[in-house]
Amino acid sequence: MTTFSFDGEEVTAEPGQSVGAALLAAGYRSWRTTRHGGAPRGLFCGIGVCFDCLVVVNGRPGLRACLTEVRDGDVVSSQEGAGRDHLAC
């Protein structure tokens, strides 16, 4: 089993699972809010086409949860808007 954290909570995953699949299995449905409406989003296409399941992994925003394989000890957090508010000016 692989273990990672999501917004501070510990989540387990099977080896080879994507971040999105592991979050889905753990009961999460959304981990992103949209830039304009602040609406919740999670997995939609599941195969890297729609860019709806964006997530922050180890500080890197904008990753597709459906394509990003979980590694043990990953720090995953939900993404608000573009996920780069630290650059906002």
Binding site: G20, R29, S30, P40, R41, F44, G46, I47
Partner: peptide, 14 residues
């Protein structure tokens, strides 16, 4: 656009 709505292929991929 609600979370929990997937494409059919997405559901199959998961």
């Amino acid at each position: 656009t609600l979370p929990g709505v997937f494409t059919a292929g997405g559901a199959q991929a998961m």
